[in-house]
Write a protein that binds this DNA or RNA. Structure first.
Lengths: 320, 320
DNA sequence: GGTCTGTCCGATCATTTGATCGATCGATGA
DNA sequence: TCATCGATCGATCAAATGATCGGACAGACC
């Protein structure tokens, strides 16, 4: 045992010289009188035994911890967690938008022609608005969700519109309401050549940025009158907690089949499993919805904030 | 400034991914959307700004033994001994600074308003520079030593300045030279309202971090022209071996009364006996000075290095 | 409006680090 | 005393890192 302690002592010394002193392993080797690989082993030992404690002294380090945990737990390609701003609740959505825009611009900046799909929602809208103007007429942007209200008016501020305006790219809108009036209407809509053409383009998209909706009294779907109060009640009855592109899902992320979901005109989520779907949502209230989306494995990337991330980590990843 | 903060944010992210997450710079680059050299620069920035804190969590048995011996022998509250580095004497002061900063941050991190006093010297300066930035505007930092040179210029990089900048706390500087030109000038200075006000704040400090100066040909006091060659000779004649805040003392730690010491404007050491004075100094050459300070009982804590510690243990504590 | 300067960015190369594998030394048992 | 097993050590190579350089962009000044 004494031998091991001696080694640990030397390991600690090597760690000091390396991490605090910034010496190279060669220098440490000559100082401690061992070979360079020997120093290597000492350092490995020091790390393994937990002698080396690294602390990043910045508020973001919290976010990084959670981001890492979420990425690993749900097999994402990335997860951006923006810091919560205690004194300015309204700016939280702005942070989200900036972070989202940064991800988005990674795709847009490319010169090769690109097809990108977009969902709807405040987050998506804010994200594209936060994007800076670049000339990319070769790109194509396509809606994954109908952008018409029930009264036939079309949302002028659809994400696709703004994005196409900013880049000069082509736009493909889905001229349909999010939720059709009846199953028959839905089938009628979906059989239209125009809509099928848009759907075809959407299938070719290599990535999609979509919002994540909660399903409760404050649901966007309900507040924006895409679904009626009775329909909301039915969804709640069936334990829906969130929705992606209008498709409701339960806590486990399983799609819910019901009278409402049968009338949703958006592209089926199954069809999009091949492409990189990126969720944008923040706020503790959205936590359950985001967690459901992650559990269902629908997303490849997530941009969220500290509040939601904390909910997800605490609720979704505590068990082993 | 906003731009700089954003950069720092990203630097923190990069540092986290690199040091905590163990990713390679390539992975970080693709994750943050910058080039690899970009990551490199971010990491350099993070280190430079002190975002990265490394702590080696192992008591080196050698250091530990001496630390214990010194703590007991001189009735200290603590004694930190950092490992020595054979080559590269310059980095030794960095080790000291890291250890000192760790002690210092124990005080600073507190939320209740705090008054701390600081001496001058390279060690103190390095220590505050190694401290990470924290927002603590409620704290007050006060000089124990005049921070003006004889030509009237004031050291912009006084420890108090840097510390106040880093925390946003209040600063109280002593607008006086360390050693006045004459006894009359000293009294004139000390009777100034302004200086008395600063002294009053200093008396309220609950802890002070001060350097320990040697008195010989390489004395800081002499090299920085705070005292003349003739004055140095006089001090050596009187067997001065060290000084605290400019107050010279002999081997036994007794203050020396002489033409020089009568002109020192710093706060009297007696007045500070109530507060926790913590000495920062390392290197075998500083051994005698440190030992004298300990023997005089002026210090409650010590941060030193292996060299000085060995000198102290061998010279000062050999008899039982 | 043009040019100039300073700053920032990314390609390239030298250095450092991490990992593998064969060799050597020591311990143990016949 | 010798053989064998095991552990540790150091040579070598691939990967990762740090540093330098040339070029491009933005802002300022003329």
């Amino acid at each position: 045992m004494d031998k091991f302690d001696l080694k640990l002592d030397q390991a600690a010394r090597a760690a000091w010289l390396s991490y605090v002193g910034g010496r190279t392993q060669d220098e440490i080797a000559s100082q401690l009188g061992v070979s360079r690989p020997g120093v290597q082993r000492l350092l490995a030992l020091a790390r393994q035994e937990g002698l080396v404690k690294v602390h990043i002294d910045h508020p973001l380090s919290n976010c990084m911890v959670m981001s890492d945990a979420i990425t690993k737990a749900f097999g994402l390609e990335f997860c951006d967690v923006v810091p919560a701003d205690a004194q300015a609740a309204d700016s939280a959505s702005h942070y989200l938008a900036v972070a989202g825009a940064e991800r988005l611009s990674r795709y847009i900046d490319r010169n090769d022609p690109l097809t990108m799909s977009l969902g709807t929602g405040r987050s998506v809208r804010a994200t594209v608005e936060a994007l800076s103007r670049v000339e990319r007429p070769q790109h194509r942007f396509v809606s994954l969700v109908g952008n018409m209200a029930r009264d036939g008016s079309s949302n002028r501020f659809d994400g696709v519109m703004v994005l196409a305006d900013k880049t000069g790219g082509d736009r493909f809108l889905l001229p349909a309401p999010v939720v059709a009036g009846s199953v028959d209407e839905k089938h009628a809509l979906l059989s239209q050549r125009l809509i099928q053409a848009v759907a075809d383009v959407a299938k070719q998209a290599e990535a999609g940025f979509i919002g994540i909706g909660r399903v409760d009294r404050h649901a966007t779907l309900f507040q924006d009158h895409f679904i009626s109060e009775a329909e909301l009640e039915e969804l709640l009855e069936l334990e829906a907690v969130g929705e992606l592109l209008g498709w409701p899902m339960n806590q486990a992320g399983e799609l819910i089949d019901c009278s409402t979901s049968r009338r949703v005109t958006s592209l089926p989520l199954d069809m999009l499993k091949g492409q990189t779907l990126i969720g944008l949502a923040g706020g503790r209230d959205k936590g359950p919805a985001i967690l459901a989306s992650l559990r269902g494995g629908w997303l490849k990337g997530l941009v969220t904030d500290e509040h939601a991330a904390r909910y997800i980590v605490e609720t979704g990843i505590d068990g082993p």
